[in-house]
Design a protein around this nucleic acid. Structure first.
Lengths: 175, 175
DNA sequence: GTCTATATTAGGATAGAC
DNA sequence: GTCTATCCTAATATAGAC
């Protein structure tokens, strides 16, 4: 059978995330989301009766992607640390977009988004700590990942950042 | 003479920052800022004829504080690295608040805020690099600071994070 | 399931009194 | 320099046709 087309529902969630990431929460209005997804506002509100339910659905999708990511990280060929750092710099994946979108919502003091992010981070930390057997190192690497991620999503990213991090982690015999 | 009272203008900027930090940019409306500062909306608009000018003034104040901070960092008793890490975790200072407020604005894709943040970071990096004489290490430490900062401002902060970072940096003979 | 039309409230900004 | 009253547009949401 042919590749399944992205459903209207998914396109709406994609559009919401895209707007949150590229223009921030003030710009992610229902009008803008509908326009971005090429759907009428009424169409949007059929799938998500309120903006709150749009957020809920987005976070639900993020949690699913997050669980899959933690598994890939634990099983990564070059090890969890390399995987974690590589995926901390934005690579344009759906997961990245969903994650950044959730962070935007979390900064509006939304407890649902905050909880989703905290759970994701707990999952990554568990893998890092298990692999490294060293809490201080695991936390420090997680902070470096957070820094890479923050810089990316705030337009402050340095091209050479990942290279420099790798060099330092080699000195610590981690990579 | 008696301690100078905070001017209405400054109280309005304080209120704007507070709302941005605690509730996000969607909540930082002119109405809310005026109420937080206990001033009427008309009063606010006398000092800042538009929201754009409110942002400009906030960034201007941030830049002044930032220049002073870089000087303190360069001259810090325990060295720039310790100073930088300590001030990367939120300590409730006016400077912290202004910085986080600017980051909120930057995420709405505002180039002025982005430029202000980038300039601040360049200043810190220059001090770190000069002190350490090692670009990779300086970048890595800056990323750790960004991670500490991001976690703080997203409600993800771990109490023990700074302690763990110090332990790892000792292994690298930095602290 | 998707659309148009419309109601309702919130946000940004102006005018003018004090 | 600060206030109240008001205007205009944008944002969320509802109703009902197709």
């Amino acid at each position: 059978m042919p590749a399944t087309e992205r459903s209207t529902r998914d396109r709406l969630l994609d559009a919401f995330e895209t707007l949150l990431v590229t223009a921030g929460s003030r710009a992610a209005t229902l009008d803008a989301v509908a326009a971005e997804a090429d759907v009428s506002k009424g169409g949007l509100l059929y799938h998500f009766p309120s903006k709150d339910e749009l957020v809920d659905a987005m976070l639900e999708r993020l949690r699913e992607m997050g669980a899959a990511d933690a598994e890939r990280m634990a099983a990564a060929k070059n090890g969890p640390v390399a995987y974690y750092l590589e995926t901390s710099v934005n690579n344009g994946s759906d997961f990245d977009r969903a994650l950044t979108a959730a962070a935007r919502i979390a900064q509006e003091n939304d407890s649902r988004a905050g909880a989703a992010l905290a759970d994701l981070r707990d999952g990554w930390f568990a893998v890092l700590r298990e692999h490294l057997g060293d809490e201080a190192l695991a936390r420090t690497i997680q902070l470096i990942g957070d820094g890479l991620y923050f810089d990316d999503t705030t337009g402050l990213a340095e091209k050479s950042a990942l290279k420099h991090v790798r060099a330092v982690l080699k000195r610590l015999d981690v990579l």
